[in-house]
């Protein structure tokens, strides 16, 4: 589902393909992501950073609708969908609360909840040779959970094009739109660039408590819908 390894100063979280090459977010993957982020939070030092990536041509293709539709009836399917939506919240809250810089190496398609998961990182790098960022909800005729909309509003200036027009955004366009920091010519190139960015950020040795507070203060609507209460740290000056 996902693996967590420590490489030098970096925590590397990888979505793995053994059961689903699209890395769709179902309860199993969501709970292993939450466990990994909880572990990172407890082990993080001021000289570390997180790089999140995935195997194969998908970064993450959103919630696992197969699992939802496999329920006994439409009502039960809706409950399963709501379960997944509710379980992604604490994963995003954990990302927004990590006391270290976070980098997503988007190594392939990132759609719907998968795009939200990527955008919840501080920095997003993306491969340019294939893969799109895509919010299919408008095409599918489903509404956005409140926290999806908040992430889109606060992380993307052109939210209309992405959310209301269902535009499939390739890496180079995403760079122009200010969504993605840089585009790279392969999955490996993307991960390598994310690793060097992560190492560079780790070397800044930022104070974790202040870093979290600044992050949360910059994205107050997201933090509000995720139930992250603003806290005031007493800092040393």
């Amino acid at each position: 589902m996902c693996t967590l390894e420590k490489r030098g100063s970096l925590f590397v979280l990888t979505l793995t393909s053994e059961s689903d090459e699209q890395h769709r977010l179902n309860p199993t993957l969501l709970s292993s992501l939450l466990a990994a982020l909880t572990q990172i939070n407890s082990q993080a030092t001021s000289a570390s950073a997180l790089v999140t990536t995935a195997q194969g041509r998908f970064f993450c293709n959103g919630f696992d609708f197969r699992w939802a539709r496999a329920a006994a009836d439409p009502q039960a399917a809706r409950i399963r969908l709501r379960t997944m939506s509710n379980s992604l919240r604490p994963v995003l809250a954990a990302l927004f609360s990590l006391p270290i810089p976070t980098v997503a190496a988007v190594s392939g398609h990132a759609a719907a909840a998968g795009a939200i998961f990527a955008l919840a990182h501080d920095h997003v790098l993306m491969r340019a040779d294939r893969g799109v960022l895509y919010m299919p909800e408008v095409d599918l005729g489903i509404t956005l959970p409140d926290y999806f909309a908040a992430v889109m509003r606060e992380k993307i200036a052109a939210a209309r094009d992405v959310v209301l027009a269902g535009r499939k955004v390739r890496a180079e366009e995403a760079v122009e739109m200010g969504i993605v920091r840089s585009a790279h010519d392969s999955a490996e190139g993307t991960v390598e660039a994310a690793m060097s960015l992560g190492e560079e950020l780790a070397r800044r040795k930022w104070v974790g408590e202040a870093y979290v507070e600044i992050r949360q203060s910059l994205f107050p609507e997201v933090c509000d819908v995720l139930g992250l209460a603003p806290k005031s740290i007493v800092s040393k000056i």
């Binding site: 800044r204 408590e209 202040a210 600044i214 203060s217 910059l218 005031s232 740290i233 800092s235 000056i237």
Partner: peptide, 8 residues
């Protein structure tokens, strides 16, 4: 601020 560990 981020460099000196102060919130905003």
């Amino acid at each position: 601020e981020v460099d000196i560990g102060l919130p905003l």
